[in-house]
Amino acid sequence: MALKSTIYKADLQIADMDRHYYGDHSLTIARHPSETDERMMVRVAAFGLFASERLEFCKGLSDTDEPDLWQKDLTGQIETWIEIGQPDERRIAKASGRADRVVVIAYAGRTSDIWWQGVKGKVERLQNVTVWSLEEGVGEALGRLAERTMRLQMTVQDGEASLGSATVDPVMIRKGVFKGAAV
C-alpha cells in the first residue's frame, strides 16, 4: 500500500516592500512521503518570494510534468515555473520551453555547487532560467519552522527576505545566484 501525503496548513502573511505586494494566504501543503520538512519549507519560502494571486502549489514530486509551484495566466499559459532542489538539465530545458520564466532554487549547501557544475553548460544557454542556491544552513533553519498548523510572516525589503513564526525566530533567506537575476 502506498503512503499518502501529509497535509500541512499555513497562514502566510507577506509584506514584500520590493514588489509592493502585501497579502495573506491560507495555504494547504501536501507533503509527499519522501519529502523532508526542509524541502517543504523551502517550497513555502519560494511561495512567499514569488507570491501572487495566481501562484499555486503543484504535484511536484508526485508528477514529473509539473513543478513545485507555478503561476499561469488567465489563458492557462505558464508564466512562472518554480523547481525546488537539483533537477537535471533535461527537466530544466523542458520547463524553459513550457514557461515564460523558470526559477530553480537549490538548497543543499555545498552539494548545490557540485550539482551546478554538472548542469551549468546546458542551463546557461537557456535565456528564461534563473538559478539560485540558498546559503548553507538556510534550508535546515526553514525546516525547523514546520508544524502541522503554521502562522508565518514573510518580510522582503531591499533584496533581503525573512520567514518566521511566533514560536521560532525569523530565518534570513540568503541566497547565491548561479544564473540570472537576484530578485
Rank of each mutant, 00 (worst) to 15 (best):
T155V: 15
Q153E: 07
S165K: 08
S162I: 09
V171A: 01
P170T: 06
G159A: 12
P170E: 02
E147N: 11
T167I: 07
E147W: 00
L142I: 10
V171K: 04
L142T: 10
V168C: 06
R144T: 13
T149E: 15
A166D: 12
A161K: 13
R151Q: 12
R148W: 06
D169C: 01
L145D: 05
T167D: 10
A161E: 12
P170K: 07
G159V: 11
M154E: 03
R151A: 13
A141Q: 15
A161V: 09
T155D: 11
P170F: 03
A146I: 02
R144H: 10
M154D: 05
R144L: 05
V156T: 15
T155K: 13
D158K: 14
G159P: 08
M172P: 01
T167C: 00
D158V: 01
D158L: 12
R144N: 10
L145I: 05
V171Q: 02
V171W: 04
T155L: 13
A161S: 15
Q153G: 01
M154C: 03
V171L: 02
V168P: 01
R144E: 15
M154A: 04
A166T: 10
M150H: 02
V168T: 14
T155A: 08
S165H: 03
L145C: 04
S165V: 06
A141W: 01
G143N: 05
L145W: 12
G159E: 12
L145Y: 09
